[in-house]
Design a binder for these strands. Sequence first.
DNA 1: CTGTTAGCGCTTTCAC
DNA 2: GTGAAAGCGCTAACAG
Lengths: 359, 359
Amino acid sequence: MRSRTVPTLLQVAREAGLSVSTASHILNGHSSRYSEVTRASVEKIARRLGYHPNRHAQAMRRKRSGVIGILQHAGLLQAAVQKANQAALAVVTAGYEVLNTDVLWRPQGVQMACSSMLDAHVEGLVLVDPPATFPLEELRRFRLAHIPVVALGGARFPEIPQVRVDARQGMRDLTRHLLSLGHRRLCLLIPRMGEGRDEAACWPSIERQRGFREAYAEADAALGNAEVILAESPNEAMHPYQNGRAAMRELLQRPRLPRAVLCSNDDWAIGALNACAERRVRVPEEMALTGFDNSMIGEFSMVPLTTIAQPAEAMARRAVEILARLIRGERLRPGDPLVRLPGELVIRRSCGTGSAARM
Amino acid sequence: MRSRTVPTLLQVAREAGLSVSTASHILNGHSSRYSEVTRASVEKIARRLGYHPNRHAQAMRRKRSGVIGILQHAGLLQAAVQKANQAALAVVTAGYEVLNTDVLWRPQGVQMACSSMLDAHVEGLVLVDPPATFPLEELRRFRLAHIPVVALGGARFPEIPQVRVDARQGMRDLTRHLLSLGHRRLCLLIPRMGEGRDEAACWPSIERQRGFREAYAEADAALGNAEVILAESPNEAMHPYQNGRAAMRELLQRPRLPRAVLCSNDDWAIGALNACAERRVRVPEEMALTGFDNSMIGEFSMVPLTTIAQPAEAMARRAVEILARLIRGERLRPGDPLVRLPGELVIRRSCGTGSAARM
DNA sequence: CTGTTAGCGCTTTCAC
DNA sequence: GTGAAAGCGCTAACAG
């Protein structure tokens, strides 16, 4: 038994008694006017030998790698993992290969990951949930190399098209729902972000605030104060629950508690639930709570979470579509620089019911 | 401003007034006997131009890609995501590039992912938590291509070295602990796996059973029956909580409930907690519960979970180390084919306390 | 319809 | 100390 090595095009061609170029043409679908016989023969032999083209040689010759990079800041955040995976699916569907990295798990995270993307000659890059602190220098490296980048969720960066859930609408829907249940004294719990950064970078937080305030404003004036709390979120991706818990613990120190707390995302809500349990504050009886993202775990938490479902699949598809267009050298269309897809209100137990609210 | 394109070695060499081979030697550290001047000049110019070697060209010429593939079946399973990420870290540390794919998010999952690994000419493959149903044909493809494979957790396959947590010891520790608290009538809830498969493939479940039974056996005979329930686990990675919940719902139909239930992993435990909440069975007062894996969420679940912490980092390092050795053509050492690393008992609230158990 | 040819960017002998 | 040259596997003109 000879030591079988990876078959090359040359071997296929030889076996078929043809030239490499012929084999190449046929296997690449440019089989325009080859005789049915040769074509069949080449294809059969390739299959029998288990021939797979060498991507490196292809990339080299074609001067394009056919790879799209996905850079995620997911850590333990289910919602981010899901977005990244949907992006991977969309990339494959669009006919590209995927190079996927979670920057959190590397030494010197972002920088190394970006270098590796550059080295691999990715043709485009999807940034999944980039934080406001994502280094602009790295984005510059891609711009210099003429590699288009799109963001899927996360913070907003100049010149980078972005697809994300309409957080403003989502938070407005949540707030309206809580108000309609009769809850008063609402409180929005969101991370303080991107200290010293362009305001645009903090959009995830800012839009949540907007939606929250809008819903409050459109309701009757007698509703009392809407409060927004900006909480710290160190190492968010690795300690999402802890951060939410810490924020809620702080809030629970107060003599007078809010009636309903809207958390920035499901992970914070889970941490918040935990803090409530510690202090024996019953949810939703004494305090209503909502999340954002509709991650699977929110359905199984202590109290199932009312939340906003992100259309992850549609978002990912759209982002990759835009990226593919940019790779092809097409210009952005009017709506492309910022696509906001609507989230969907998912009502579960954590927001309470009308009757309980009036307690 | 000229359209900057990716600089090649040729450009670096030209700018330095030297030949490509010289530049190559210097930049690859084979600068054995070049003058200090030339060396410095080449290095400086390379840095200024932002030169990065073209991986494809390198792979081609060196006839090795320098890439290790990571194939995960994680889905929403935090423990698996963590293992995969630790593996990625270990791979980078070992000086290889990473090609990471979660097979669940691709059409025709496993097969496509394996093809893509093969196409990329990975030098080795880490299989993270492969299910018992992982197709052996795919493993054969790697064997034929002389690409070594190691499993990090998951099922066991012939000829594939594996590194995993010692589930038997872990489950024995959990069981002992529950017994020491005074709990009787214990029940182990594990997935029925790999229908019609080699028994070895089902080791994750089998070892849990062994540990469970051993602890029971070594204790007094008067402890009553230890029961093992094999529950269905369709699409485990995408519906982990649901599966645990379904299994527990079934169990809760019984007239007489077990006093303590040991779940196969934390995700099942969370689903189980959910089922208990539905039926108003209080944990741990009426029923103790334990998980396995120590995923972050278990600390924040309805009732914080007593569980076994997997030494993910050490496991990943070990797996990659073995893989690297195989890639270098070295033979396996005596312990390598199956490495079992000890898990650590983490005691939280879900297992109850001695006093409650005697209730 | 099929084959010849010229590289893609890099590494690696082997000469000088 | 440095450079010339060959060639990895593949594609894409261009010839026949």
